[in-house]
Design a protein around this nucleic acid. Structure first.
Lengths: 221, 221, 221, 221
DNA sequence: GATGAATGAGCCTTCATTCAT
DNA sequence: GATGAATGAAGGCTCATTCAT
């Protein structure tokens, strides 16, 4: 093996010309990494270009403006997140408790819950107040998630005789997860994913005691 | 009143000048407002100065660098937050459930939970990854809060016979609140404080059913 | 006639391949239009390419550099102008007053005196100071025009007994026309060609009263 | 003389801080020089700053944007021109022929008719098509000049029995001058001011033979 | 011939910081 | 204390040019 490529032994050097879509995906990935590394405010085109091993001119050739690049990056994050939970839900069992467990686990998969993604989300949240891009881009996806989770909570009541308000329980589950994400970003020594999950299971065990225990979903009787 | 002004006693300061501390507080308040309005990335000294009705030169006279201004602003937010929950706790009844209720309610008081403060917190979280100031400035306060809350949760077990892991329950309470804060920041049409509190009570009613109900703390038997 | 093709009712859409010269002429024409529309400073290769419906790469394939494209555009304008007055002169009667009238009228023909051409000339004049291309390209043509006009003015003296300095009268005629061109470019509500011509006839009537009247050349006695 | 100060042997170096107005005038003067030297398209803030011996930041501190700097430069040129001919007219004798002579001479005074000013005018004309600033800025001044000149030409008819259309004669005078300006800008070896004036006198001698001769205004009888 | 991805020099602009008043 | 002129580094962006296809 004579590969001296600094990108690692298995990574091919990025070809000089790429298909339009591949290039765009590569640039968006570098944008996420740069936001994670330097923060939103210090994410410059030059920094992204350097991370991607490209010239800054090429970034603007593909995205026209920095703002559009950031918007499309947020789009990409949002779509990736939606695809992830939708896939998890599709693969889950038919019972509502299966759906809840699947959604919770999906949010802590390494593809979603990693330093770079969390930092990028956090950065966009931090700017969301002053710029409306977050709402425009993520609003519909967020609303879909909420409706889906609330519907499952409603089925927990219908199928298993619980009596919780589905909107509030759904929201409680979601804010627990988001709060933990924030912990993982902000805390000095963040706990690991198992501990994160255990915290959610603890909450779920309290509201759905016949279907969840502090260590995770109960096996069906 | 002991005058600590290093430039000597000011019996009748002209309206044009202010005490050192008052000026600093005024500038920090304008910084919070500016971050809330324009976001972290677009918070410039000129913008803060304009919001304060001062020249930008004066800001640097008082804070030396922009970085120090932002650090002290974060300090101020963090101290304000700590004072708020400590005061609430001090005013609460002796029972652990009183403490929990007081801490929860404290986090949604208008002095703490308003657009400007939330936006500023969110902005600092969003940039926290790239700058270690958050850890230095807020880490101790955060740790104190966690210890305090965990101790109260431990007393809930000891005094009332619950069997929850205090660390996880404490964390669950905290992340619920933080997640709701995020909701209030990021959601397109955020719900009101009553709904936010109701969500927390719902969670607390699940873990401490004899002391909390979905509509709030239960009256002592 | 419902043809809305901007190239005119009879022009076929530009074929994908064209003869070398036809392509070059097409590109030069688009350059003139672009200069007229956007001004010299904002005339970019991309804009010219877009106006021509071609890729910018092709422009450089044909002209190598932007500078050469602009130089050849100026050449083209200059040659077109010379051809126009030479043709008019060749078609005019033998008397010197016929020549003067022909030259004057030639300068206000629609093929020469239209928005796009005037704007392009004006743009080149505006930049001429900094770039010696104007002299190189248009100097000889301009000198030829001056010599020709002065010779005709000299014949007005010789043939008809006027006593004007041919250089100054020739120059006066020329600067009147150029000044009017400038008016047509710069004035908010420019007058029409008839009014422009009337102004020149008025000047000519003053210097050659037996051969010109304010409304135009006098018919030969 | 060993003074190598580019500002000239007698000019003190510009003081580090200047009154607001003096600084602005200095910068506008440097802008005119830069436009004259490099042309409109290549007039950059850096070049103007260098010509003024200042940092480019200071230019924007005083003028906010490049566009505003150029607009104010045009304003300045236009006002300077108007002041010049108005002063000349005010100093002229009461007869209309005095006014015409004064206006003509004013346009060729060194303060107005020098390389830098002519080049700057020419540059603005060259770009005027694409930017409406010329109309807004110079339109009123131009209209005032035209009205004034036409009124004088009307008085030539009334006082001295000439029968020329005042609008066309006024325009003829003006376009002669502008055409000569263009000559002085564009020609390879431009003639001098005396020759320029002689050309105008020649034209005026033709239309007002009792009051002008090819060498200048006639002395009053 | 023709296209368009890719580069990089240079532009305008922002902004933290310095400093004279 | 307070102001605002002045500086210069760095950012986003434009665009002529190169080059692989």
């Amino acid at each position: 093996m004579t590969d001296t490529n600094p990108h690692g032994p298995c990574a091919a050097p990025p070809p000089r010309t790429m298909s339009r879509d591949a290039r765009r995906r590569q640039i968006i990935e570098s944008t996420i990494l740069t936001i994670a590394e330097r923060g939103y405010a210090r994410t410059t085109l030059t920094a992204v270009a350097k991370a991607a091993g490209l010239s800054h001119g090429l970034l603007l050739f593909h995205f026209e403006t920095k703002e559009k690049l950031l918007s499309e990056t947020l789009d990409s994050l949002s779509d990736e997140y939606r695809s992830n939970w939708q896939a998890a839900l599709a693969a889950a069992g038919p019972a509502p408790e299966d759906g809840i467990a699947a959604l919770v686990r999906a949010d802590f998969l390494p593809a979603i819950c990693n330093q770079a993604r969390l930092a990028a989300w956090c950065a966009f949240w931090g700017e969301s107040q002053s710029r409306p891009i977050y709402q425009t881009r993520c609003g519909p996806n967020d609303a879909l998630y909420n409706r889906t989770l609330e519907a499952i909570c409603a089925r927990m009541n219908a199928d298993h005789g619980y009596g919780h308000d589905p909107v509030r329980i759904g929201r409680m589950i979601r804010v627990m997860i988001e709060g933990i994400w924030l912990d993982l970003m902000v805390a000095e020594k963040p706990y690991d994913v198992d501990e994160a999950l255990a915290t959610v299971w603890t909450g779920l065990a309290a509201v759905y005691p016949r279907h969840f225990a502090p260590h995770g979903p109960r096996a069906p009787a």
